[in-house]
Design a protein around this nucleic acid. Structure first.
Lengths: 109, 109
DNA sequence: CTGATATATGCACATATGTTCATGTATGGT
DNA sequence: ACCATACATGAACATATGTGCATATATCAG
């Protein structure tokens, strides 16, 4: 048994509390789906309505709406109403930066 | 129809190619599970054998083994053999940095 | 070679997830 | 009030995912 092991056992200094674990996993889970990545990637520079997103990415309206709802619950996107239109935009700089970094990291590999 | 929309339609400058999409989503998916987060978090500073990890995190040996296999396929961890023991350690600084940042981000929120 | 320990792996199972269809709600125009 | 358009939502479905059991493989000691 290593000393590191003995050091780790008992103390849960090395482990994460349940709430942190939940928030972190939810955040990454949001970025773990191709459709949501495409949507967030589209929102990097501009805001778009639900139907705009569906048309540009060739997705069903309901699919986009469900995913935007998911992202909105996690406060990764926000929206602004204009008549019957809802214009969505990103709302978490930290997450958007991670996404950008990872996309770049993936592109030159 | 917005100008941004017209700008985006047709050009897929705004969309990601399939391979990038796959790599990025796989990477984030790896971080989207509480068990894998706990394992990677444990590996921040030290290497541990499979049974060490199972004992410390109170998980089944097969669960840990399965998840390490998952992480190893994505090159997020590597291992070093010593007799019958396999000592696992992290193998992707970029991913570990993202994890650390996100944990800190979650903790003071 | 045998036994003991450490780890990996295939299968089965329960649950989670993503998409679609159908329909509901909301807003504005006439 | 009615219709048209934009979006949301619930249910159903197929697929993906995480875990556990049982078993296979690997390495070493004797």
């Amino acid at each position: 048994m290593s000393e590191e092991y003995e050091e780790a056992l008992g103390k849960n200094e090395n482990d994460l509390d349940e709430e942190t674990l939940f928030i972190v996993s939810q955040t990454f889970k949001a970025l773990g789906d191709p459709t949501r990545i495409r949507i967030l990637n589209l929102l990097f520079n501009n805001e778009y309505s639900v139907n705009d997103i569906a048309d540009i990415l060739d997705l069903r309206q309901s699919t986009v709406s469900h995913q935007l709802s998911f992202l909105k619950n996690l406060r990764l996107v926000k929206h602004r109403r204009e008549g019957t239109f809802l214009y969505y935009s990103h709302d978490d700089e930290h997450v958007m930066n991670m996404l950008k970094q990872t996309i770049e990291h993936a592109n030159h590999s």
